[in-house]
Design a protein around this nucleic acid. Sequence first.
DNA 1: GTGGTCATTGACCGGGTAGTCAACGTAGAG
DNA 2: CTCTACGTTGACTACCCGGTCAATGACCAC
Lengths: 190, 190
Amino acid sequence: MGGPKKPEQERCDAILAAAYEIALAEGLDAVTARRVATAAGISTGLVFFHFHSKDGLLEALLGVLLDGTLDALSDSDLARLEPWDRLERMIWVELERLVEYHAAVELIFAFYFSRRDDLFRARIEASFARYLAAFSPVCREVAAGTRIQGDELAATVVALVQGASIQTIRNPESFNPEAILATLRAVRPA
Amino acid sequence: MGGPKKPEQERCDAILAAAYEIALAEGLDAVTARRVATAAGISTGLVFFHFHSKDGLLEALLGVLLDGTLDALSDSDLARLEPWDRLERMIWVELERLVEYHAAVELIFAFYFSRRDDLFRARIEASFARYLAAFSPVCREVAAGTRIQGDELAATVVALVQGASIQTIRNPESFNPEAILATLRAVRPA
DNA sequence: GTGGTCATTGACCGGGTAGTCAACGTAGAG
DNA sequence: CTCTACGTTGACTACCCGGTCAATGACCAC
């Protein structure tokens, strides 16, 4: 028994990397303490030593997923554009990211729907809510002086982007962000 | 051993009803042969006698879900309306249905994301595809004579409706279909 | 009645799971 | 060098799962 020691951070990262790989390749159900331990080249007990429980491991894994896929939304360097152009640009960037990270986004949805308690949902909900927060300002600008209500537009945009994420998961190859963008451009208020 | 006999149909319905109830109340993971049998007041063996395997039971349950929630889309009695009014109306009806059946829709998504093989996904995909088929004709009519492309509009509408279904699941109480409809009306082409 | 068909039971099996723990190495402090 | 603190191991427990099956009863045709 016993074996070489590594710093906590390094071990945790290795375990999470193994869990991430298994989840991507075979889905959330395949993420068991044993399989993760084997994939990381350590014993099962060590997983619990570092993450206390399986839920602890999954929470950490969810954190990795959310940090890597949903938390880059920003319109800081777009301030010079007209509001509608900025909105279009933000949507475009987001749709491209959804295509790129569709496997990770699928895992996030798998987390969301695998449980009904708040353990995972609260975290995911917070990330989703950031969508609304990110789109709201520009939507209000776009709506100003039109018949459109800013908050209603923001709700619609969020629904559209999230629906697009489902399309991306359903069929990553055939999903075409350009179709949605083209429609938006065509209904652009004068 | 042995016990009162019931016709196959009646038994299957009772088992499915029990499974449905458990799934709604506690999620898909809670649907085990034992729990379903207990809830239906029968023995575990009988579940397998009637459905052969757990996957068989889940497939049947998914069928019940899809029949009850996604398969009523139709625009037959709306032919007299202008294309755009018809599209609005269809979206409205669908959004209201999503709110009403949000628990069942959530279960459908749980089915979708619980597995990555085609056992459940193919069935759900077929139902989702019917969305596109249902919206395509009216979208083409709406697009005729405008800068909008019919098929692109249809893809956008499907994404919007499916995104709205996620919003409904996230927060059934606060989700407001009217917000989306109002935005659509505001961007309605002349 | 009698025989046969079939729904029904529940104990049972093999297997995978989360989580525990006493024993054991290893490294660093004194 | 020794002692202590802690990372590490893997066998172990308790549990629940899907699935099987011989025994059993209910029902029907004759």
